[in-house]
Amino acid sequence: MTIAPTLSGGLRLIPEEEQDWSVLLEIADDGEGNLEARFGNLMDEDSMWEEIVVPELKVDFSAQRKEVRKAVLEAREQGREGVTIEREQADLWYGALNQARLLLEERFRFGPSEFVEVEKIKDAVMRSAYFRNEFYSQVQSLLLEYVMGDG
């Protein structure tokens, strides 16, 4: 996979083999879960989070995953060189990548990356998840640095 900035201020993800396309599609798959409920659990019952906020979060998070999946599928089906993340789509992509990483962390408990000893991860599923998580994190860093600009 090659990642390159675009002249319009975006980022282009350029798969080099079929497996790379699969990794891009897994962003949405890895983010499938009940992430919004996790945020609801941080609030007390009086806040009515479950009734008011969690349903809104569910809609927002689902839309992020849906758009990312659609962008990847369209790019692959139309034989494009890669997937372009325009500046105005950066937050959406960042959010979908974040969902994937939050749920991978919840499932595998990698902890802070500086403490992970990857050679000790023997389980193939966990090892694959770890490398996807690292890839997603790299894309997020590049989005922050080159596309999303200063807060």
């Binding site: 941080l42 974040n98 939050l102 962390e105 990698f110 990356s113 922050l144 200063d150 807060g151």
Partner: peptide
Amino acid sequence: VLDDPVNLMEYVSRVLVQIFGISKGRA
């Protein structure tokens, strides 16, 4: 705000600036 091992530090600062309107240094 509670710590987690996933959210990137730069992103957390960015969100705090955007939501609370504070300076980047304070964030």
